[in-house]
Design a protein around this nucleic acid. Structure first.
Length: 479
RNA sequence: GGUCCCGUAGCCAAGUGGUUAGGCAACGGAUUGCAAAUCCGUCUACCCCAGUUCGAUUCUGGGCGGGACCUCCA
């Protein structure tokens, strides 16, 4: 199956042709660990996760690298002598920048776990790569595409003609941009920092090249260092949020390609920002959600994952609490269909004669086709639910149940938002007191004391379980 | 101001130059003691105006509306 992905650089769908057949290298711009991860962050990271899962589903061997930015990116204020994100958080909390970084890095990993993210193979910290950044900076200085002013080192954009290709920024207009603070040190306003000197900065290192001043790395160099370190000079796919296109990825291309002399990335992929209640998520509008916020409201990681993954990554998904409720219902529908198959397979329910062959084939083919076309998850989900309906309406044989469960396992393997295969019967997992109530209800039903039976059912429901009445008897499911 | 994306039934959201996407919700029926789950059915839409075409939701142009980026941001 040909996999086509949208390349931001060419602004078109391109067939994925790995540099080394059968293997795909991916680099993802990861979190800046100065605050709690929010749902927008994870829209982007879950997109990367689904991409990786689908490529593996297609038999490709994937190597994933995601950086942890613990140096902090400079804020706008920094241009005028302010501080970076980590430094700012440090001042507010009284903790050191290092403590802040480690705290939020741990929280990020926790979110990854809760959202069922398959962990990237490498998650390097920027602060562990100061030396490698220095080597690149030194090389760029040697090559004459970077220059030093008062210890600060800048990349000279004029020396890299392709600058602006990714973002489509017209250079002349950039120069006149109103939000660009004047920096007399730069030869050109577009030049960007590779190394900065600021004696007040908490995180500082001796310059890792001869003759350099003590300071800290600039905005973009970490990704070049870590990507090339783990994956080589050329990588297949590089992802990030759409905001990364400019300036971050534009600068990354410039400095990396100037350094290696080779094309850095084959396919650039960018996730569209999500909207919350139809508008941009922001703290001032009060529609800002961290991952923890959502989980605290009683939604599961799977439900949040479903809500963030169900729309194709290049569409501006509209996140709502109602959407989470919909996710809950949708997941339940899938899991109920799976459980039905499990019960047939395990001999708890009578098998039928339907073989499901056509449905299995159709579901797999439609799912693959949808995902192959730039990860069209919405369309892939339609294939999933079409299959749910096929399973539910028929009377699957034992062989069909087995085959159907393989299909569902595959869907779960790629999307990861349904959960593991349901147990055939969860009654035994319920607390003993609920089992006692269930027994009482069964007795009440036998005595045709409907009022008592219904009252008992209500009590069980209040405890978070629901009764499933079936021909073989009633059982309990976690609601 | 520059660049770009989008506007699909109650809500979310695919897709197509002419054949019911899907999910959630709602309603009717089957099933059930009543429910839950499930099945069947109903609600069947493409912002507006021109143009191209035998035919446009789908292509072109204009308008209106929403959103994004333009050195904090996934």
């Amino acid at each position: 199956m040909v996999i086509r992905l949208y390349n931001s650089l060419s602004r078109s769908l391109e067939e994925l042709r790995p540099l080394r057949p059968g293997k795909v290298t991916m680099y993802h711009c990861g979190p800046t660990v100065y605050s709690s991860p929010h749902i927008g962050n994870f829209r982007s990271f879950l997109f990367a996760d689904v991409l990786r899962r689908f490529l593996e589903d297609q038999g490709l061997v994937v190597t994933q690298v995601m950086n942890v930015t613990d140096v902090g990116h400079l804020t706008l204020d920094d241009i005028e002598g302010g501080e970076d994100k980590l430094e700012a958080a440090s001042k507010q909390t009284g903790k050191t920048a290092w403590e802040i970084a480690r705290q939020y890095e741990a929280e990020f990993h926790d979110c990854q776990r809760q959202l069922h993210v398959r962990l990237p193979h490498h998650m390097p910290r920027a602060t562990d790569f100061i030396h490698q950044m220095g080597e690149i900076i030194d090389d760029l200085l040697q090559k004459g595409v970077a220059y030093e002013r008062n210890g600060n080192v800048y990349f000279e954009v004029a020396k890299f003609p392709a600058y602006g290709q990714l973002s489509g920024k017209v250079l002349d207009e950039l120069e006149a941009g109103a939000r660009v603070a004047v920096n007399e040190e730069k030869k050109d306003p577009r030049d960007f920092a590779l190394w900065k000197v600021d004696s007040k900065h908490q995180m500082q290192w001796d310059a890792p090249w001869a003759g350099g001043a003590r300071g800290f790395p600039g905005w973009h160099i970490e990704c070049s260092a870590m990507a090339t370190h783990y994956l080589g000079d050329q990588i297949d796919i590089h992802t990030g949020g759409e905001d990364n296109i400019f300036p971050h990825h534009e600068c990354e291309i410039a400095q990396t390609e100037a350094h290696t002399g080779r094309r850095f990335v084959s396919i650039w992929m960018h996730a569209r920002h999500l909207l919350v209640d139809g508008t941009k998520m922001s703290k001032s509008l009060g529609n800002f959600f961290t991952v923890a916020d959502v989980l605290r409201q009683g939604y599961s990681g799977l439900e949040l994952r479903y809500a963030l993954v169900r729309v194709q990554y290049r569409q501006s998904l509209n996140f709502t609490l109602k959407g989470l409720d919909e996710a809950r219902s949708a997941i339940a529908r899938v899991q109920q269909a799976r459980q039905r198959l499990v019960r047939v397979r395990d001999g708890l329910d009578l098998p039928g004669v339907d073989d499901l062959d056509a449905a299995v084939q159709q579901a797999n083919a439609a799912f693959t086709a949808a995902m192959s076309e730039d990860l069209n998850v919405s369309e892939a989900l339609a294939a999933v639910f079409e299959f749910v309906n096929q399973c539910n309406r028929g009377a699957p044989s034992i062989a069909a149940a087995k085959a159907g469960l393989v299909v569902f396992a595959r869907f779960e393997d790629v999307l990861g938002c349904f959960g593991s295969e349901p147990k055939a019967d969860t009654t035994a997992d319920a607390p003993p007191e609920l089992l006692a109530l269930l027994a009482q209800r069964t007795a009440a039903k036998k005595a045709k004391d409907w009022a008592a039976a219904d009252a008992l059912r209500d009590r069980i429901a209040a405890a978070g379980w629901r009764i499933v009445d079936a021909p073989g008897g009633a059982r309990l499911e976690k609601a």
